[in-house]
Amino acid sequence: MYWNDWSLDRIVVLFVSLAFLLIGIQVTLYHYRQNFHHKAMWLPVLASPVFFVAGIILTWYNASWLHTLFLVLMYVGAVAGLIGVYFHFRGVGIRVGGWALRNFMIGPPVILPMVFTAVSVLGLIALYWKGM
């Protein structure tokens, strides 16, 4: 099988899957550093490997049930990222000095949950793209 034979949506699903592997590693490091002090910290840590595995399997085996599963997982990922934006933004605000620039620089990374949502939306775009 050659790359020329792959549709764009299939390549994007592969990219999204690999991105979740990397995001999952980064999220795990950040949340481990904070000792998982809030239960919501476990959601992206546990979801990222599931998103990775489901996407990799979907890349190689295009079954309708896998397509539906990945679709649901991407919606969950988009919502989870938005929830993370709330918690991270709130986490910056409760630091001494509130929403000062220094707190955005040393506090919880507000952009990382947005990346989680963006990659999930990219996965949704790939699934709704014609061809898969």
Rank of each mutant, 00 (worst) to 15 (best):
V50P: 05
P49G: 11
F70R: 01
I94Y: 01
L122F: 07
L124P: 12
L112V: 15
L21C: 04
N103R: 14
H67Q: 10
L127R: 12
P108M: 03
M114Y: 04
V119W: 02
I25C: 07
I83C: 13
A47M: 14
P44R: 00
T28P: 04
V92C: 06
M132R: 06
G97K: 00
L14Q: 09
F20R: 01
L112A: 14
G77P: 05
L8G: 08
F89R: 09
L127G: 10
R10L: 03
I106K: 13
L18K: 08
D9Y: 02
V12L: 02
Y128H: 14
V119Q: 01
F104T: 02
G107P: 09
V27D: 11
M1E: 10
F89A: 15
W60D: 03
L66F: 08
S17T: 05
S7L: 10
A54K: 06
I94L: 08
G97I: 01
H38I: 14
V76F: 05
Y128F: 11
G84W: 02
R102Q: 15
R90N: 14
V12I: 12
L122I: 04
F104S: 11
V45F: 05
L58W: 03
V121E: 11
L127E: 12
L73R: 01
L43Q: 07
V50M: 07
L71D: 12
I23R: 00
L71F: 07
V50R: 01
T117G: 04
I125V: 13
R102M: 10
S48A: 15
M1K: 10
P49L: 07
L101C: 08
L8F: 01
P113C: 12
L29Y: 07
L82F: 02
Y61D: 04
H37K: 15
V119N: 01
Y2D: 11
A126E: 09
Y30V: 10
F36H: 03
I106N: 12
G77E: 02
Y2P: 04
V53Y: 00
R90K: 15
V115I: 15
L58D: 09
V85Y: 06
P108A: 13
I11C: 08
G123W: 02
W6P: 02
I94H: 10
L29V: 14
P49V: 06
G93K: 06
W65T: 15
K130S: 12
Y128W: 09
I83Q: 10
A80D: 14
V50F: 02
F20A: 08
A78P: 09
D5P: 07
L73E: 12
G131E: 01
L122P: 05
M105G: 11
F15R: 00
S120P: 06
Q26W: 01
V13M: 13
H38D: 14
G98T: 04
V92G: 07
L22P: 07
